[in-house]
Simulated scan of single mutants.
Amino acid sequence: MIDQVRALFAKNTFLPCDVSTIADDADLYDAGLSSFGSVQLMLAIEETFDIELPETLLTRRTFASLENIAEALSGLVSKAA
C-alpha cells in the first residue's frame, strides 16, 4: 500500500520536493505538505481508491506520514473489496 501512496504523491504536487527522498515515517508537514495540499491529497485518495474517508480519519495525524496514510488506507481498501 505504501508504494501506491508514493505513486499518488509522485503524480501530484502535494509536496515541494521529490517524494522518493522522504522516509516512510517522515513528517510530511515538515517536508512541505500544506493544509490545502492535505485536502487535495484526501480528494485524490478518494478518487484513486474509490472510497470515502470517514471523518474520524480526517485528521492531521492521518496525513502526517506516508506510513500513516498507508495504514489508514489498508483498513479502508480491504473493507471496500
Rank of each mutant, 00 (worst) to 15 (best):
D24K: 04
D18N: 05
A44M: 02
V19Q: 02
A70C: 09
E71P: 05
K79F: 04
Q40A: 02
V77W: 02
L33I: 07
A26I: 15
L58T: 14
L8F: 12
T56E: 08
Y29V: 10
F14D: 14
L43P: 02
T13P: 01
S38V: 07
D25V: 08
R6Q: 04
T13D: 14
D18K: 02
D27C: 15
I45Y: 00
V19K: 07
T56F: 10
A81C: 13
S78N: 13
S65W: 03
T62A: 01
F49L: 03
V19R: 04
A64Y: 13
N68K: 11
A31E: 10
P16A: 08
G75T: 11
D30T: 10
Y29S: 07
A70M: 14
A64P: 10
G32R: 05
I2R: 15
T48F: 02
D3A: 05
S74F: 15
L33M: 12
L28A: 04
G75P: 06
F49N: 02
L76N: 03
N12M: 14
Q4I: 08
L53Q: 00
N12S: 12
L53M: 13
L43Y: 00
E52H: 05
G32A: 10
D24M: 07
M1T: 14
T13W: 01
S38Y: 06
S65C: 06
T59A: 15
L8C: 13
S65A: 03
L33A: 07
T13Y: 09
E52P: 00
L43C: 07
I22L: 05
S74I: 10
P16Q: 15
L66K: 04
G32T: 08
R61C: 11
A80R: 13
L53T: 03
M42V: 07
T62D: 06
S38W: 13
L28F: 03
G37A: 14
S35V: 10
A10N: 06
L53E: 00
E52M: 01
I22N: 05
D24Q: 05
I2L: 09
L41N: 11
S34I: 08
L43V: 02
N12Q: 12
G32Q: 10
S34V: 01
A31S: 10
G37H: 14
L33E: 06
N68E: 14
D25Y: 05
T13S: 12
D25K: 09
D50E: 01
T56P: 07
C17S: 02
T48Y: 08
F9W: 12
M42T: 12
L76R: 08
K79C: 12
E52I: 01
T56M: 08
T59G: 15
D30H: 08
T56D: 09
T13H: 14
I2G: 14
S78T: 04
R60V: 14
S65K: 04
G32Y: 13
V19W: 02
G75M: 09
S78H: 11
E47Y: 04
S38L: 12
L57E: 01
N68P: 05
V39D: 01
V5Y: 00
S35L: 07
V77E: 11
F9K: 04
E52S: 00
I45A: 02
G37S: 08
L43M: 02
E55T: 06
T21R: 10
A10T: 14
D30P: 06
S35Q: 03
A70N: 05
E55H: 13
A26W: 15
D30S: 07
K11Q: 05
L73V: 13
V39T: 00
